[in-house]
């Protein structure tokens, strides 16, 4: 079947079987491998992408459900060689070890900051509870989200998102 995907500002026309997942399409057909397979049942968050700004587990969504909607993957965040404030905060706070959960974690964090500009640690933990970091860097991730919130709130800071 033919589908149109809008990913990171570009439109793609694809002919793929309808049972294929969004994750499989963006990784394999579009070569955007920043989104990861972790569990295949939406329980770890490694495959998280944003659809219309909301976090979605791309491993558990069939391609048809994502067609025509605005999709953001980790590859769509940095622009012109400069990192998005959430990426910058994860880098500076050393909020990852193996890094496999990081793209999904960053996208979920970004979606949170769109809803709540200055979340508490409890709000961060609740919102990100579906994202697993098996290395256990949760305290650093919370710090990074706080740092990103602060940097986005500064009038002269980067406030893209």
């Amino acid at each position: 079947m033919s589908f149109t995907l809008l990913v990171n500002g570009a439109a793609y026309s694809l002919d793929v079987p309808p049972e294929e997942t969004l994750l499989s399409v963006i990784r394999e057909r579009l070569g955007l491998t920043g989104s990861k397979y972790g569990c295949g049942e939406g329980r770890c968050g490694a495959c998280t992408v944003l659809i219309e700004g909301s976090p979605v587990r791309s491993c558990s969504m069939k391609i048809g459900a994502a067609a025509g909607k605005t999709i953001t993957t980790i590859e769509g965040l940095a622009s012109g060689g400069s990192l998005h404030p959430v990426q910058q905060a994860f880098l500076e706070k050393q909020a990852f070890q193996c890094g496999y959960c990081t793209p999904g974690m960053i996208l979920s964090a970004l979606a949170l900051l769109e809803h709540i500009t200055a979340p508490t640690s409890e709000q961060i933990g609740r919102y990100l509870d579906g994202n697993v970091c098996r290395c256990g860097t949760y305290p650093r991730i919370i710090e990074a989200v706080h740092a990103a919130a602060l940097s986005r709130s500064k009038p002269n800071g980067k406030s893209r998102g």
Binding site: K36, E75, F90, F96, G99, I106
Partner: peptide, 19 residues
């Protein structure tokens, strides 16, 4: 210091075997 290849992990550019 920050991880020497840390930027590749926050941008999704790093290629794990599965990538």
């Amino acid at each position: 210091p920050l991880k020497v290849n840390g930027r590749d992990f926050v941008t999704g550019a790093h290629k794990y075997t599965s990538d």
